[in-house]
Design a protein around this nucleic acid. Structure first.
Lengths: 208, 208
DNA sequence: ATATAAAATAACTGACGGTCATATAGTTTG
DNA sequence: CAAACTATATGACCGTCAGTTATTTTATAT
């Protein structure tokens, strides 16, 4: 049956068009100031049509979060693959996160809002179900490898430690991105220094 | 002039009444679901009157953030005062934060939203101007003391380190509070364990 | 008593997320 | 090919809510 397949393709294309339009508007205006009418206009569709494909503004936004997650996840996988030792993988992931912050500011901010904003539970759960979208997992695996190859202390629990490192890094990134001006101008502190120092502290905590 | 003083007192009382009402509703419903009409009703005033004292819903919410800050600040000061050594002060502050999370859930959540939510810049700045409302400062001072008394490594820069520890802790607290169920039920991880382990990692990083 | 200033109100406005009855284009069937 | 059917799309409409304003009430000063 070629027709239903073409229909399906068209549907997917339409969905992509809508998400693209939404992304543009969300990036431009932020979640709160973006309106569904504006997104519809950008997509050259009526607002009603958006609701045919996405059940709410939140739901549409979650699509952008998902994109951000995928990109970050891929960067993590790539970074971890470049080195052998577990502890090096962990560091490479940290570096990759910082690089992500530098050259994907929009997606980065979306990720931050995912970590902090009140996302309806159902959406949150459906996202976690998507394995390709959990950068966290790369970190857990790298720590496990580190414990096995002896580059990370044996007494460390991979799951717990991954959560902690993730939380630490996210907290740092959030502060960094939100209070950048305050830090640099108000306190005369360089972001890069902060990141390096933070890295050092985390390394002290896990290195064998 | 006794009358204008009484007027001023009454004005302050009214302000307090409004903030009390707002707090109740915000705690009950969260920022987004709370309505100004509801707050007005709770305060036994008309909505217009709220706008006589506060210029927006955001502005009113920032009052609650400020209360949360003050409480946390006081707890930090108290905790730090109980011990002598700088490094112990830092640990006491961490412990106080956790205790704050345990017995002031509502205020804690408000603090978290302060760290993450998009608060209009002007409000943010006016809050930072309020010295009594920056728990951060207690941490910086304690680290400085630790460097002086030799309980914290000499090569550590108090300002930078304070920011990092603050970011780490906030990130951890945020994750903890938002994904509590997921961690405990999904991954079978105990929050208390996480906090302790995180504490250990941070201590490795700063102890002399 | 009256003028004046401050505090409070409630009806109103505009914006926006979400819905629904209706229309249109594409597909199937007789 | 026409009629019936289905999926897709529309835009006018609705309810809610933050914020405003014209008006009224209350309190102070003259």
């Amino acid at each position: 049956m070629g027709i239903s397949e073409r229909k399906e393709r068209e549907k997917q294309r339409r969905i992509k068009e809508i998400v693209d339009a939404a992304e543009l508007i969300f990036f431009l205006k932020g979640f709160k100031n973006a309106t569904m009418d504006e997104i519809a206009q950008q997509a050259e569709l009526s607002k009603g049509t958006l609701y045919l494909y996405f059940k709410s503004k939140d739901h549409l936004y979650s699509q952008i979060i998902q994109r951000a997650c995928r990109i970050l996840y891929n960067r993590f996988v790539e970074a971890a693959a470049k080195v052998k030792l577990g502890v090096d993988k962990v560091n490479a992931i940290g570096e990759a996160y910082y690089q992500f912050y530098l050259d994907e500011k929009d997606y980065f901010n979306v990720m931050m809002s995912f970590e902090s904003k009140d996302i309806p539970i159902e959406i949150f759960v459906s996202m976690k179900a998507d394995e390709d979208c959990d950068p966290h997992i790369v970190l857990i695996e790298s720590i496990k490898i580190g414990v096995e190859d002896g580059s990370i202390r044996k007494d460390i629990k991979p799951n717990e430690t991954a959560i902690i490192l993730w939380a630490f890094t996210t907290g740092l990134m959030q502060l960094t991105s939100q209070k950048k001006e305050l830090l640099e101008e108000g306190y005369n502190i360089d972001i890069k220094d902060i990141i390096q120092l933070a890295d050092k502290i985390m390394n002290y905590g896990i290195k064998a």
